[in-house]
Amino acid sequence: MKIIDMHVHLCDDESFQHTLDLVKSAGVEKIVVSCLEPSDGVYKPTPEQFREDNARVYEWMKKEPGYVHGWVYVNPEHERESLDEIDRAINEYGMTGIKFECGCVCTDPRYIPIMEKAESLNIPILQHTWFKITGCIDGESKPADVAFLAKQFPNVKIIMAHIGGDWQRGIKAIRGLPNVLIDICGSIVDCGAIEMAVEELGAERIFFGTDLPDIDFWTNLGKVEGADITDEQKKLILYDNAVRLLGGDL
């Protein structure tokens, strides 16, 4: 079955090569990548840091044209610089959408100009999202925050990453919002999560992703392969939905 991995992080050339070797040998057709280094672990990158991150992704895109696609990583705390970086990444680098991590919670008004830019460019958002009963880190968005953002911008497609972490909360928070999509990536491997997502959201709103290189590729593929859903639904999740969303770029 064809696969597009919509959620990959790369930090340096070594991890790029390891990841590339793995996904190619696993038969993955394309990967969509963001770089959170050198700001990884800081979560609030300066403009200099996110510019460097995105420049690295561009280098990898050039090394593997047509195979590596890019998410432009920005921090809404730096509005002007984020908007400029999006222009550069979309127009010059040919990236496909915007990646938000934990710069600030997505209910923050500083998201508004960036979301308006996304709407004008007709590009999707990949939003890190995780409800943690143990407490979120500073700037981390929860599923309810994504729902709030999605209602403000119904014409912007927002991918809620990790099914929101706590997937039961995540699915229920966004099920009535057709512009919110999800990816399944990350360390949560709970049996039943994919089935609930398909039943409540429809397979058309679900993307395959891994969170490589931190999280294991096979762990994530196993969630889809092991789910009690039809082959047609698996095909949508693993490949077809990504083609439909990013069709112009792929």
Partner: peptide, 13 residues
């Protein structure tokens, strides 16, 4: 860790 987790995830690993 079945039935909490997908068997296939560990198996494919």
């Amino acid at each position: 860790n079945a039935p909490f987790q997908y068997v296939k995830s560990s198996l494919l690993k």
